[in-house]
């Protein structure tokens, strides 16, 4: 039950985009068509599900106080270790996909390297670390669930956004608001809509 609760929380209530603004850069830039949004959403979900547990293990067995050597606290290295894991994992995925599935590689193309600097991925790992401190994530399974949930939440958000923006082509928007301006306001309104999920507890 706890695990299910964590999953629902990370998809809807603590949604990466609407509650924390993570991954906004690619969220605004790549949400122009549903097809590309789906591709990027799937890629982010995959990378998130893999890097959060990886970073969880590193956090638990290397970085935490007294984890590696008694009396040594390496937690100041968190940022550099997490970003190195993420960047090298993305590089690895890129090489594997290129080798085994060239068609998927062509579809994802430029998105894969972009994921390395997507704040949602780094943010997911940093929040995981916070949740470990607060006791919400207590095992490897929890961290996988959290990674999957937060990645899915981001993917749902960008696909919905792309669907709305496709329809927007037919509407009259004031000249100054066209493009990013209206995208921000829509995201804000969607965020308000997502606030109805707050307080749900399973």
């Amino acid at each position: 039950m706890e695990t299910l609760n964590l999953f629902v929380r990370s998809v809807f209530i603590d949604n990466m985009v609407f509650a924390f603004f993570f991954g906004m850069c690619s969220f605004i830039a790549v949400s122009k068509s549903v097809k590309t949004a789906l591709g990027l959403g799937a890629a982010v979900t995959f990378v998130q599900t893999m890097t959060v547990p990886l970073n969880y293990l590193l956090n638990e067995y290397v970085l935490a106080p007294n984890a590696l050597v008694e009396g040594v606290d390496l937690s100041f290295l968190t940022f550099i270790v997490f970003i190195a894991v993420i960047a090298s994992f993305v590089q690895l995925v890129e090489m594997v996909v290129e080798k085994f599935s060239p068609s998927l590689y062509n579809q994802l193309g430029i998105f894969l390297p972009l994921i390395a600097v997507n704040c949602a991925i780094m943010g997911g790992s940093l929040f995981m670390q916070q949740k470990v401190t607060s006791g919400e994530i207590a095992s490897l399974v929890d961290s996988i669930v959290y990674g999957l949930g937060s990645g899915l939440g981001w993917a749902i958000a960008i696909v919905m956004m792309a669907a709305i923006r496709e329809r927007l082509q037919y509407s009259h928007i004031p000249a100054g608001l066209k493009g990013p301006g209206i995208a921000f306001i829509i995201t804000g309104l969607m965020g308000i809509a997502f606030m109805i999920f707050s307080g749900i507890k399973l």
């Binding site: 100054g176 608001l177 301006g181 969607m190």
Partner: peptide, 29 residues
């Protein structure tokens, strides 16, 4: 509601609107 996250997005949207109304060359077609 100003303290909730969505308002930050809406304020930025409005800032972009005001800014582009004065800088017409930035407006998208």
């Amino acid at each position: 509601i100003m303290l909730f996250p969505p308002m930050a997005l809406i304020i930025v949207g409005v800032i972009i609107w005001v800014h582009r109304s004065f800088n017409k060359d930035l407006q998208e077609k």
